[in-house]
């Protein structure tokens, strides 16, 4: 590596009682990168983000953020971070604008400077017309946007976003993506978690998929799809279980891998169209049939399983 990583975690561990939420995690994030944590509920994403944000102590391993150790220099690190936590921590009693203003003061900014930045940031997330409303009166999505605006008041080098767009409508989501993209272009490093695969594909240069506190895959979205899935997926639905069962033997002969679900069969294949042609010429008659490109979601489900984990 030519550059020193902004985040360097080696063997990072977080425990809650006997339970290990983050289990010897190794992660490096380079300056200017947009890096994503994906994983099912309870995978340990938030626990990891909180340790990086220096608001949660690690129970093992080494961690360096911006070249410093959170255990001893948390305050100095946090001064240069922007944090969007999974659960909002806004001041409901204060107005939208006052929330940003007071946050600037926490960072030791002058009142005049904070005012200037607050107006700019509220414009940035399109909340200018709500600036004098109490946060109490905002919708969930507006609060989320305010949290994002607030996190940028110190012009952070590294922005940590834990599910930044959960609960946003599509317009707001695209707005946030566009803003994050701009932020990245201006040189900031982004680390985010998300449950939206399209978000990860859009925003992340590189990501890891976590499960049970460990990393199960790492790479660019494209590389992950290439490595863990086929180019195409054929989805076939049948009239009933009987028909589906009858078709399985024939389906064994196409594609690289099949996945049988209660309501459909997925065929992972390098060339979906060719397979469909072969299948429809002789063979099973599915009720519906769809050929599509593999997505990150296929990788995610393949690696972390389809069932809900306890």
């Amino acid at each position: 590596m030519s550059e020193t990583p902004l985040i360097d975690a080696r063997g990072l561990v977080k425990r809650f009682g006997d339970f290990t939420a983050v289990d010897h995690l190794d992660v490096q994030v380079q300056p200017g990168e947009a890096f994503g944590f994906l994983g099912p509920n309870g995978a340990g994403k938030t626990s990891t983000m909180r340790m990086i944000a220096c608001v949660s102590q690690r129970d093992g391993g080494a961690l360096s953020v911006l070249g410093m150790d959170p255990a001893t220099e948390g305050s100095a690190i946090r001064a240069r971070l922007g944090v969007v936590p999974q659960d909002d921590t806004l001041d409901l009693e204060l107005t939208v604008r006052d929330n940003v203003l007071i946050y600037g003061r926490y960072f030791g900014l002058s009142r005049a400077e904070t005012r200037r930045r607050a107006d700019e940031l509220l414009e940035f997330v399109q909340l200018t017309d709500r600036r004098d409303d109490r946060v109490d009166a905002l919708s969930g999505g507006m609060r989320r946007r305010l949290t994002i605006a607030r996190s940028l008041v110190n012009q952070p080098e590294l922005v940590l976003l834990d599910e930044p767009t959960t609960g946003l409508d599509p317009q707001a989501r695209h707005l946030v993506w566009e803003r994050l993209y701009r932020l990245k272009r201006s040189g900031a490093t982004l680390v985010l978690t998300t449950h939206y695969m399209d978000e990860a594909e859009q925003l992340c240069d590189r990501l890891v998929i976590m499960d049970g506190g460990r990393i199960v895959a790492e790479g660019s979205p494209r590389a992950l799809i290439d490595r863990h899935s086929t180019r195409d997926v054929v989805e076939l639905r049948f009239a009933d279980e009987h028909a589906q069962h009858a078709a399985l033997a024939r389906l064994e002969q196409v594609g690289e891998r099949r996945e049988v679900l209660p309501d459909r069969v997925l065929v992972y294949t390098a060339d979906g169209d060719a397979d469909v042609e072969r299948l429809t010429s002789d063979g099973p008659h599915p009720e519906s049939l769809l050929v599509r490109r593999s997505t990150l979601e296929d990788v995610f489900l393949t690696l972390t399983g389809r069932s809900l984990e306890e």
Binding site: V55, R78, P85, T89, D91
Partner: peptide, 14 residues
């Protein structure tokens, strides 16, 4: 309940 302390400790404040 409202959690503004958690907002504070995400800044240089300890």
């Amino acid at each position: 309940w409202i959690r503004w302390y958690h907002g504070m400790v995400a800044t240089p404040l300890r």
